[in-house]
């Protein structure tokens, strides 16, 4: 059994990380701390998950969120998708293993992956609306959020949701408030089977190794850890029975990375754009210097007057001939 976190102290506790521990800050630069905190991670062992949704309930409770009572659309997933209130949802997939012809009910807890290279943060135009702490937690700072939804486009996992109430972006915070006082996330605390565990990234990786060994002994030859390198690794990782096919788990991306479109948008396009604008401006200035202004001469006025006074009918003939 993974040792559970001891209960929190009842006295006020100093936060273990804060503003001084930022390594990234959206649309702005930060001075990274001299020493990076030990990276934390949440490990979701899909093979241990029983889909009880205790994590969903704990998330709603701890974060004091109000989700609407939905409808049943013929599946167990409820709510059907992430929302500004449901920062995590269970996704159920009925998958028939083509090798054994056995049904496998794959249940994956979806939510923010806390990428080491967060696409949301990269896309965010509002300074300080998205921050990354040196322990790896990617957090939204709502007073800085402008609700533009760029994070949604930046995220390779389609996680952030914009609230219709306050037009701010919401996603799992990895319970940064709990982690700051030495607790694990609420979902991990609530998980009855320890399918969700929390600790340092190294601890999680070695815990996952043990789990993968167990799964391989049970015939899951492709069991493995999902810590996708395309986004620099994540601070929420999965143990999958079929790590070679993450997409069968309700579309978990195989080799996710920040979309090249987003890279283009947030990278080259800026330089090219400003270069183009600058080029046009410079051209204009240079042109005016070199060519001077185009001025109407007295002669032009005279010609015009002559035309207006005398050449009206000729003009119309002329026009007809052109």
């Amino acid at each position: 059994m993974f040792p559970p976190f001891p209960n929190p102290p009842t006295t006020p506790t100093q936060a273990r990380f804060g503003e001084g521990d930022l390594i990234r800050r959206s649309a702005s630069s930060v001075t990274p701390p001299a020493q990076r905190q030990t990276e934390v991670a949440k490990l979701i062992d899909v093979s241990k998950c029983i889909g009880c949704k205790a994590c969903q309930s704990a998330c709603l409770e701890w974060n004091d969120l109000h989700e609407e009572v939905g409808v049943n659309v013929g599946v167990y997933d409820n709510p059907l998708d992430l929302t500004p209130a449901s920062l995590t949802v269970m996704r159920f997939t009925e998958w028939v293993n083509p090798e054994s012809q056995n049904l496998e009910w794959l249940i994956r807890k979806d939510g923010c992956m806390h990428c080491e290279d967060p696409g949301c943060l990269k896309a965010c135009p509002a300074p300080g609306a998205i921050v990354q702490y040196s322990n790896g937690i990617v957090d939204f700072v709502h007073e800085n959020c402008i609700g533009c939804g760029y994070c949604v486009k930046g995220c390779p996992f389609n996680i952030p949701r914009i609230s219709k109430v306050d037009e701010k972006a919401y996603k799992c915070t990895l319970c940064s408030d709990r982690v700051a006082v030495g607790q694990g996330p609420a979902c991990a605390k609530a998980c009855p089977t320890q399918a969700i565990v929390f600790g340092t990234k190294e601890q999680m990786k070695s815990h996952a190794d043990g789990r993968i060994k167990d799964l391989k002994s049970r015939g899951f030859a492709n069991a493995g850890l999902y810590d996708p390198p395309g986004v620099g690794g994540t601070h929420v990782m999965y143990v999958l029975h079929h790590a070679d096919k993450p997409e069968i788990y309700a579309g978990l991306p195989n080799n996710p990375r920040i979309s090249p479109l987003v890279d283009l948008w947030k990278g080259v396009s800026r330089y090219a754009g400003f270069a183009a604008i600058g080029a046009f401006a410079v051209f204009s200035v240079l042109h005016s210097v070199v060519a001077g202004r185009s001025k109407v001469s007295e002669e032009d006025e005279t010609n015009a007057k002559r035309l207006a006074d005398h050449e009206g009918s000729n003009g119309s003939q002329e026009r007809a001939s052109t």
């Binding site: 109407v296 006025e301 015009a304 035309l307 026009r319 052109t322």
Partner: peptide
């Protein structure tokens, strides 16, 4: 001014002048 039109949009000016005559 007519001169401006003469210089930059003479065809337009011609048309207007023709209209004016008519």
């Amino acid at each position: 001014t007519g001169g401006w039109a003469w210089r930059h949009h003479r065809k337009w000016l011609r048309e207007l002048a023709a209209d004016e005559k008519a």
